[in-house]
């Protein structure tokens, strides 16, 4: 697990009084890596290629059971609003991967 790299945050606070001093310090953190990957099955390569650059797989995997048209709407939003550079040739594989993700639990 990656941890805080450097820098203690320092903020000297007194009671709310005139002349109060507040000091800011440089700060940095290192964010952890994903621990959850797309389950490997048909289409997982397309998911990694087109989705993982912008968000963790968990954003997809935590969604409730969605209908194919709901998933299609989400793909459209990713392209139209967020300008996701989704490869057109990968879209059928993405669609079927998402459909399988929403398959009824056994």
């Amino acid at each position: 697990m990656k941890r805080v790299l450097a820098s203690m945050l320092l903020l000297a606070l007194s009671a709310c009084q005139p002349g109060e001093t507040v000091e800011f310090a440089d700060a940095s953190i290192e964010l952890p890596e994903d621990v959850v990957a797309f389950p490997v099955r048909a289409g997982s390569d397309a998911m990694i290629r087109n989705c993982s650059a912008c968000h963790s797989p968990s954003m997809v995997l935590n969604q409730p059971k969605l209908k194919p048209d709901q998933w299609a709407g989400i793909i459209k939003k990713m392209k139209d609003v967020y300008k996701a550079p989704i490869n057109r040739a990968d879209e059928p594989a993405i669609q079927s991967y998402l459909k399988a993700t929403s398959a009824p639990l056994r």
Partner: peptide
């Protein structure tokens, strides 16, 4: 569902939080 969430990975300066998404 799906309803299960992990408390991992830990984030700098944070205690146990429910990780909905890492990035």
């Amino acid at each position: 569902g799906p309803s299960l969430r992990s408390l991992d990975p830990a984030f700098p300066g944070k205690g146990k939080l429910i990780v909905q998404r890492v990035h």
